[in-house]
Amino acid sequence: MPGFVHRRAEGLRGDITLAVVVAAVAAGLEFVYGALRGEAPSVMGFLLLGGGAAGLALLRLAPRSAGLLIGVSTPLYYILGTVDTWAPVLTFGIGVFRLASDGHRCAAILGTGATLSLLSLGELLTVLAGGSLSERTFYALAWPLLVLAAGEAMRNRRAYLREVQQRALDAERTREEEAQLRAVEERLRIARELHDVLAHRISLINVQAGAAAHRRDPEQAFDALNEIKQASRETLRELRSTLGVLRQVDAPAGDTDSALAELAPTPSLRRLETLATEFTQAGLSTEIHQEGTAGDLPAAVDLAAYRIVQEALTNSLRHAGSARAWVTVEHGGNEVRLSVLDNGSGGSDGTARRDGGHGLAGMAERARVLGGELTAGPRPEGGFAVHARLPCHSG
C-alpha cells in the first residue's frame, strides 16, 4: 500500500508539471500569434487555455472530468477566442491520447464527443449565418477522431505487450513447476528403489545373523554366516547396479565393481522362484503360484510387481516370525493381480506395526504410478495380506 500511494503521488506531480508546461506554452503562443497578426489576446482565450491545462492536471485523479474539461475548452477557444493558435490542439491531443492509451476509454470518448459536438455546432451556425463548408471544416471534424484512434492503438499495443509478457512469465513458472515435479518424482523413485534393494537384503542378513548368534552348532553357525556373506554380496551388487544406472557413466575396463553391476539381473517376475528360495533359506517358507498365461509385460509393470512382492515378503520376514507365505500372480489380458499372504502374528494392530517404515507407502506409490491400486491389512484368520492390481498398458 505505501508503494502504491507513492507511485500515485508521483503520477499526480507529473500531471501537474505537464499541465503547467502546456499552460505556459499556450500562453506564449497566444501572445506571439497575437503580436504577429495584430490581434489582441482576450481574457476568455486565456481562461479557456487554462481550463484545458487544468484538464491535463486531472488526467489521473479524475479522468472523466478531465476529458470533459478538455473536450469543451478546445472548441470554445476557437469559437469565442480572438487569437487562432494551435495551442488547444496540443492540449487536446495530449489529453485524449493519454486517456485512451491508459485505458480510460469512456473519458476519452466523452472528451472527443464534446469537441465534435461543439465544433459541429459552430460550423452549423457558420452555415446558417451565410457561410459555407470548406476543407477546414472536415479537418476540424477529423483530427479529434484521429487522436482518439491513435490512443486506442497505443492501448491495444500495451495490452498485447502485457499479455505477451504474462504468457512468458506463466510459461517460465510452468517450466519451473514441471522441473520441480519431475525432481520430486525422481527422488521418490530413487528412494523406492534404494529402499527395496537395501531393506530386502538387510532383512535377510539380520535374520541370518540372529540365527547364527543363537545356534550352538558350529556347522549351522557357519552355514548362517555363508548366507550372510552371499546376501551381502547380492546387496552390494544390486546397490552398485542401481547407483550405476543413476550415475549413467561408463566404467573403465577391468573395474570389478562395474562388472558385477553389469551382471546384476534385472528384477522381474521371472525371478520369483529365486526370490522365494532366498526367503525360504532365511526362515520364511515361501510358495509361488502362477495363474494365467504370462506374456511380455511392460518393463515398468514387471519391475513394480517384483518390488511389491519383494517388499511384502520382507515385511513378512520381519514381523511374522517363523511363518509361511504364499505368493499368487494372476496374469490377465490387461492387468496383473498380486497376492502375498502370510500366517504370522496378525492382530488388529498388524497394519500399524508393519507400516512403521516406508514399505507399505512405497508399494502403494508403485501401484498408483502405474494407474493401479494396492490394499494391505491383517487377515481375519491371522497373518497379513497384500493385494495389488497393476494395469498392463505401456503408458
Results as ranks from 00 to 15, higher is better:
F4C: 15
V5G: 14
H6T: 11
L12N: 12
L12I: 11
D15T: 04
A19G: 07
V25G: 07
A26P: 06
G28V: 07
L29W: 02
V32L: 09
L36T: 13
E39S: 09
A40V: 09
A40I: 09
M44D: 06
L48S: 00
G52D: 00
A53N: 06
A54M: 05
A54D: 04
L56C: 08
L56F: 04
A57I: 01
L61Y: 10
G67H: 00
V72F: 04
S73F: 01
P75Q: 02
D84E: 08
F92M: 00
V96S: 07
L99M: 03
R105E: 13
S120Q: 07
L121M: 13
L121A: 15
G122R: 06
G131H: 01
L133T: 10
E135V: 15
P144H: 03
G151A: 04
R155W: 06
R155A: 10
Q166P: 07
Q166N: 11
Q166V: 08
L169K: 15
E172Y: 12
E176K: 12
E176F: 07
E177C: 03
E178G: 07
V184R: 15
I190R: 14
R192G: 15
E193I: 09
H195P: 08
V197P: 08
H200N: 10
R201S: 10
I202P: 06
A211I: 09
H214S: 14
H214I: 13
R215N: 13
E227R: 12
K229I: 13
A231T: 11
R237T: 15
L239A: 14
G244P: 06
D250P: 08
P252C: 01
A253D: 15
D257P: 12
A259V: 10
P265R: 02
T266N: 09
S268T: 11
L269G: 08
R271E: 11
E273D: 14
E273Y: 08
T277R: 12
A282S: 09
G283W: 00
L284A: 05
S285V: 13
E287R: 11
I288Q: 03
Q290C: 08
E291K: 08
A299Q: 14
A299W: 05
A300Y: 03
V301N: 04
R307N: 13
A312I: 02
N315W: 01
S316W: 01
L317V: 03
G321I: 01
A323N: 07
A323F: 06
H331D: 06
N334V: 10
R337E: 07
S339Q: 14
G344E: 01
R354H: 00
R354L: 05
L360W: 01
A361L: 05
M363E: 04
A364Q: 14
A367E: 03
R368T: 08
G371H: 02
G372A: 04
L374H: 04
T375M: 04
R379T: 05
G383P: 06
H393Y: 05
